[in-house]
């Protein structure tokens, strides 16, 4: 009695081994021509980076500009954000009670905003 599996030896006795299958896969791959595929990928890669760069760095510069404008008391020339700022300011005052008129607070806020946008930019580039 044999302890070979029921289907062993396989029918026909001659079957493609690894080399035969590898040859078939390689032949199929070799038949694929570039036909502009690389150019399309690179065009999209270039475009996606451009849009992302404009959005992320644009937002970062806008935030940084607003923070700097606040430091130099240029807030009256910015678009009205009284409601938004007031709500956030109240929330902050309820916690650590910082004084928004204190230049040190504004500098810290500007630095925090810069760090946040820089982190956002790095994360966005990784995605």
């Amino acid at each position: 009695m044999s302890n070979q599996p029921p289907e062993w030896p396989p029918e026909g006795g001659e079957q493609p081994g690894d080399d035969g299958l590898a040859r078939m896969f390689a032949a199929e791959e070799a038949a694929i021509r570039d036909d502009g595929f690389t150019a399309r990928v690179m065009e999209q890669a270039h475009n996606s980076f451009g849009v992302r760069r404009v959005v992320v760095y644009g937002a970062g510069m806008a935030g940084f500009g607003a923070a700097v404008a606040g430091i130099f008391d240029m807030a009256p020339y910015l678009p009205a954000m009284t409601g938004w700022w007031g709500g956030m300011s109240n929330a902050l005052q309820a916690g650590a009670a910082p004084d928004p008129s204190n230049p040190a607070f504004l500098i810290v806020a500007a630095l925090a905003a810069g760090a946040a946008f820089f982190t956002l930019a790095l994360v966005a580039q990784e995605r």
């Binding site: 396989p10 029918e11 026909g12 001659e14 079957q15 493609p16 081994g17 690894d18 035969g20 299958l21 078939m24």
Partner: peptide, 14 residues
Amino acid sequence: GRAKLQKALAAYER
């Protein structure tokens, strides 16, 4: 999968 492919493609090896 390899065993099934080998069986299906045996004709080309022969």
